[in-house]
Amino acid sequence: MNEWRRFPPAAKPIRVEGGIKARSKRGEIAQTWWSRRFIEVLESFGMGGRLQRGKRYARAGQVLNLTLSTSLVVALVQGSRPEPYRARIAIKAFTADEWERIERALAGQALYAAKLLAGEMPTDVEQVFDELGLQLFPTTMRELTMDCSCPDWEIPCKHLAAACYLVAESFDEDPFQILAWRGRGREELLDRLRALRGSVSGPAAEEPDEAAPLSERPETFWSAPESPAAPATPGTEPTAPDALLDELDPLPVQIGDEPAVELLRPAYRAMAGMERTDRLPP
């Protein structure tokens, strides 16, 4: 057998202490629909085998550091060489104009706004982006830019795959990381949604928002609205209880020699007296 035809065995990675380990020990790593969506998109690119090797790296804690910022994820991954490899995953952030359209669309839907304000990702949020001609998740490899300092010429390598799995877990913990990757941080987005829905402090916030979700005003959701008090005019006497009869057209009815209206007056006055009696303190 020709020895030169034999390939050397793959070098094992240097084990490290204190690395970032995936919480999942077996099976799928992504738990929520939005993180699974991210992994499904990656797997649809024909990256299955390398993702599996990357999954083992992620579970073994080979990723030393992972940071996510606008457009860019950077990870330091310990491989078989002493120097850790730097893996980068970049995606195009939405522009300021695009984010303004997105925020208005989200704020215009009470359910979307309520779920986001509660820290949840609405299940059909992708539809909002689709209707605006935008994609929340990448749909082709051209939308992602990946590179790694390792000698493997294949993209993605196992180091990039490990970073992808840990990014998916970060999406599980905080769905706003997906939006931050696209250019809008959690607090900035929530402040914009509150402002657009009229929930900021100031005169605008004093008027009730009919579309406000239950989560924003649970204490008043089951309360009947208070009847507005009739405005009092200074210097005037209270209206007589039978004054309404004087506003009506004369009834063409008489009982004996008395018009029907005059026979109704005592009844109106008596009912008004009963109401005042009921309101007296015990």
Rank of each mutant, 00 (worst) to 15 (best):
Leu190Cys: 03
Glu237Gly: 02
Glu219His: 15
Pro231Cys: 13
Glu226Pro: 10
Tyr268Val: 10
Glu258Thr: 15
Ser199Lys: 06
Arg217Tyr: 14
Arg192Met: 03
Ala272His: 02
Pro241Gly: 05
Leu251Glu: 07
Arg184Gln: 10
Gln254Ser: 11
Phe171Ala: 11
Ala204Glu: 06
Leu245Asn: 09
Arg279Leu: 09
Pro234Met: 04
Gly183Arg: 01
Pro250Leu: 08
Ala212Gln: 07
Ser223Ile: 05
Thr239Met: 07
Ala168Pro: 03
Phe176Met: 11
Ser223Lys: 13
Ala267Lys: 07
Glu169Gly: 01
Pro266Ile: 08
Pro175Tyr: 00
Trp181Met: 05
Pro252Val: 04
Leu263Arg: 14
Thr236Gln: 12
Pro250Gln: 00
Glu237Lys: 01
Thr220Asp: 15
Leu248Arg: 04
Leu179Asp: 04
Tyr268Arg: 07
Asp209Ile: 12
Glu210Cys: 09
Leu245Phe: 01
Val253Leu: 15
Asp246Trp: 08
Pro252Gly: 05
Pro208Glu: 05
Phe171Pro: 04
Asp172Val: 03
Leu196Arg: 02
Pro225Lys: 02
Met271Arg: 15
Gly185Gln: 08
Gln254Trp: 07
Ser227Asn: 11
Pro250Ser: 04
Glu187Trp: 12
Thr233Pro: 04
Asp249Arg: 12
Phe176Ile: 05
Arg276Glu: 15
Ala205Phe: 01
Val200Asp: 07
Arg194Leu: 03
Phe221Arg: 08
Met271Leu: 15
Ser201Glu: 07
Asp209Cys: 05
Asp172Gly: 09
Ala240Gln: 05
Ala229Ile: 09
Glu206Ile: 04
Thr233Tyr: 02
Leu251Gln: 06
Ala224Cys: 07
Asp278Glu: 13
Glu207Asp: 02
Gly185Arg: 14
Ala195Arg: 00
Ala205Leu: 04
Trp222Met: 08
Glu206Tyr: 04
Gly183Asp: 11
Ser227Lys: 13
Arg184Lys: 07
Ala224Arg: 13
Asp249Gly: 06
Gly183Gln: 10
Arg276Phe: 11
Arg182Thr: 05
Leu245Val: 04
Gly185Thr: 07
Gly256Gln: 08
Leu196Tyr: 00
Glu210Phe: 08
Ala270Tyr: 14
Pro238Ala: 13
Ala168Thr: 03
Ser227Gln: 11
Ala232Trp: 12
Gly256Ile: 11
Gly256Leu: 07
Ser215Trp: 13
Ala230Pro: 14
Glu207Leu: 11
Gly202Lys: 03
Pro252Thr: 03
Glu226Cys: 06
Leu248Asp: 10
Ala240Ile: 02
Glu210Gly: 11
Ala272Thr: 00
Leu189Arg: 01
Ala180Leu: 14
Asp172Asn: 09
Ala168Met: 01
Asp174Phe: 05
Ala204Leu: 01
Arg279Met: 14
Gly273Ala: 14
Asp242Ser: 06
Leu264Ser: 04
Arg269His: 09
Glu258Met: 10
Ala205Tyr: 04
Pro225Thr: 02
Glu216His: 12
Arg182His: 09
Pro203Glu: 01
Pro225Leu: 09
Ala260Ile: 15
Leu248Phe: 12
Thr277Pro: 08
Glu187Ile: 01
Pro228Arg: 09
Arg186Ala: 11
Pro228Ile: 05
Arg184Cys: 01
Leu189Ile: 02
Gln177Asn: 14
Glu247Arg: 07
Arg194Trp: 03
Met274Trp: 08
Val261Met: 11
Ala230Cys: 10
Ala205Pro: 02
